[in-house]
Amino acid sequence: MKFAIQVNEGPYQHQASDTAFQFAKAAIENGHEIMRVFFYHDGVNNASSFTLPPQDDRHVVNNWASLDIKDADGNPELVVCVAAALRRGMLDESEATKNSIEGNNLHPAFRISGLGQLIEAGIQSDRLVVFGD
């Protein structure tokens, strides 16, 4: 079955991203497809390449990356909402350049796109599951 997941909370602040990750991992291990994970609200912080948890803690960002969720062409399907991301200082190289900001912090396993990607995920998946607070 084809699943889509929405994550609304940042890592470490709330369990939502951990639960969503465990759900996605179990789905993949049981032969299902995660067609997209959409990060919204503070959930965009799950994509920060600047994340440095202490060694004895789980690395939420790397956990997401380890799932290797991509489309048929190899594009990441860990999608960060552009409006929510820019509000919260989560930038890929192109947004940083466009806004004349030095540095960028979007982990390469993720991509930034619009809210339409969430609606599209709702349309194209068999099930959309929301993890939030």
Binding site: N8, Y40, H41, D42, A83, A84, G114, L115, G116, L118, I119, E120, G122, I123
Partner: peptide
């Protein structure tokens, strides 16, 4: 599509960002 809103407007970001999704959703003719 059902958008389930259970929080008031300003204490958290959920209300306004929910409305932003709804406005985008309009273009998808669902």
């Amino acid at each position: 599509f059902m958008y389930l809103n259970r929080r008031s407007s300003f204490g958290t970001v959920y209300a306004i960002e929910s409305l932003e999704v709804v406005l985008i959703a309009a273009a998808f003719e669902q």
